[in-house]
Design a protein around this nucleic acid. Structure first.
Lengths: 108, 108
DNA sequence: TGTAATACCTAAGCCAGCGAGGTAACGACC
DNA sequence: GGTCGTTACCTCGCTGGCTTAGGTATTACA
């Protein structure tokens, strides 16, 4: 399936949001993004997994192997306290940014 | 002056919008973006000028030297027909994208 | 048997943007 | 005369996220 040309920098926000209610594994995060955006955003695995590793390295996510709903082992990610703070900041940044662009586009 | 971490890919849209009413020179485009976004977006010249050259190479912008309001020579950019089409497409893409992200962020 | 879905991973390459440098002309100020 | 801020353009090196394109292994189903 084709990618969806992410605006670079928005993926982290979506991932952090995806795990904001509780642990989720990578594959499910990708599916969640695709579903909640009605296929507008289809994150490639080659972007998703490296991003998860990055966030884990930055201590914004924690990983833990456990059993998924289908009975297989999967790597579950959850927010660290720093991750939750970062989510808030990134979200604010996104809202400020997208609001600014919207204003620019609205000018006549 | 510090930059403002653009979401990669949004700069072209802003530039095209900036010249959608008529020719503007590079420096004025940068200023327009900064002003209409109330300093939220401060585009670095190291990003701006290469972007202008890119858009010109893709025949989305045309350039022409003429005199600026201050009486100096400046390179004025204007939209080609293809540029106008591209602006519409990029705008649609942005609106779809930002709408999708907003929906994702709104989920509880 | 083989196809689709689940679930993970990596490597090569591209290229936009960042940071930091530069040139030159002009006006204002002291 | 010198300096500072603004206007107006430019380039170069580097980083790093994303795309594309591969790969493995397991389970379920036809």
């Amino acid at each position: 399936m084709a990618g969806s040309d992410l605006y670079t920098g928005t993926l982290d926000l979506l991932i952090l949001k995806a795990v904001s209610w509780g642990p989720r594994h990578g594959y499910a995060i990708g599916r969640w993004i695709r579903e909640t955006t009605s296929d507008v955003l289809n994150v490639q695995e080659g972007a998703l997994y490296p991003a998860l590793h990055r966030l884990e390295r930055k201590r914004l996510l924690e990983e833990e192997w456990r059993e998924s709903e289908t009975g297989r082992q999967a790597k579950y990610y959850s927010l660290t306290p720093a991750g939750r703070t970062h989510l808030r900041a990134e979200r604010r940044r996104w809202e400020e940014y997208s609001g600014a662009v919207a204003r620019a586009l609205a000018t006549t």
